[in-house]
Simulated scan of single mutants.
Amino acid sequence: MNTLVNATVAEAMEQARQNLLSLLLAEDRASALLLTQWLFNLNHGLDVSEIVSDKTVESIIVQGANFVQPNLGQAVQYLLDNPAARSSLSSLHFLPGFLIEVSALCRSTANHRPEYLIKLEQAAQDLQRLRQQMIAANIRLVAFVANKHKTTVLSFDDLVQEGVVGLIKAVERFDPYRGYQFSTYAIPWIKQAISRLIVKQEKIVRLPVALAERASALFEAMRNTYLQTERWPSIEQLKSLCDLSEDEIKTIRSYYQATHSLDAVEDNEEDEGQALMARMKQRQFALPLDELIDRSLGRYLDQVVATLPDKEAAILNMRFGLKNHREMTLQAIADQLQVSRERVRQIQNDALKKLKNQFGYDLMLFLEPNDSY
């Protein structure tokens, strides 16, 4: 749907919403039913944002009810008991879905004039028709966003279905008179719905949603750093790039591992299930034996690298992050040593060849069974 048509339908929908709200507030019994339904939803745990989208709802209602201390439930009850104080309700952006629900409840009772019920039904049908038209016309926007969030765990249809939930929220809350295009307003709602679904469903062990939603920033920083330096960033680098603590970074990195189906067929039949079982090993916490091997390997590498000439040892330490060095690219090392990148590469390869020839047999003990060097 082009921008002009979108804006036209949005304006018509807003006028229909205001028309239905005005009809509900025109009758004391209808406005009382609106407040009763609102209070019922609040008492049963429904968030106020699912009823009215105006962020100033509490201050408007409390002020209209002449309450000094803001308490939305008491204020709604006060308006329910005092029909003369309900004028403030007209300034609130009640969601179309809620207004349609209240109008249906009004029509199900026999306490209203027939001509009023006819007007109410017509207004509700107009609002519902425009609401559905706005949703249907922007399904392609949902597909566009869902296509950018493809995952191996969730199907494209699942992403679109959840994105439509975000689209409906955007349609209900959109105010065409604030000067924003609908697509600009709707995309964040669609992204939020899809990303929350991915967070909830993609991993077997789930992070808290608030932390998991911030994981994308961490992975983006890791990806960008790797593309620039050809090395994964350290914890300190990630702390400087993301607004996350060290514990949060470690938690996110430890929980986000690939998941595999137990029914998956292995390509190599000779493994007899060994590869699949290896994938099932927990990786959230380091195994004691692995930690011992890593420490032993670190100490041994320090010893063997120390046998090299100073320049070769320094280059290997900087290149591979040994002896508390940060892993560096060939170009970064070349800039620091004021030599060419090619010269650093030659020295590195010569040093590695020496270590392989002198200590290769001992280093083989640290390799996994299927690894090579």
Rank of each mutant, 00 (worst) to 15 (best):
Y300M: 13
S216T: 14
Q331P: 03
V199Q: 13
I333C: 00
A143T: 09
S88E: 02
S296D: 09
Q336T: 04
L337G: 11
A286I: 14
E248L: 12
E220F: 12
A84I: 11
A264M: 09
R29I: 06
V68E: 05
L167M: 03
R295N: 11
D175T: 09
L363C: 02
R341N: 13
L23Y: 04
L4D: 13
N82F: 14
S53Q: 09
D294S: 13
K281T: 09
M13E: 06
Q74L: 06
N71V: 00
A146C: 08
V171T: 10
S240M: 15
V165M: 15
S183D: 06
L141W: 07
A123E: 07
L25F: 03
E172I: 03
A351W: 00
P309T: 02
Y255Q: 05
H44R: 14
A85C: 08
R113S: 12
Q63V: 00
F94I: 01
S31T: 01
S31K: 01
F285N: 00
R279P: 14
R223V: 11
S216N: 12
L20V: 02
E266A: 01
F156D: 11
L262R: 10
A84T: 13
R113Y: 12
L154C: 06
S296Q: 14
A124S: 10
R341K: 03
P288Q: 10
N43I: 06
A16F: 04
P70K: 01
D81M: 08
N357D: 04
A170N: 06
H112E: 03
E121C: 10
T184A: 15
C106E: 09
T56E: 12
I194H: 02
V48Q: 05
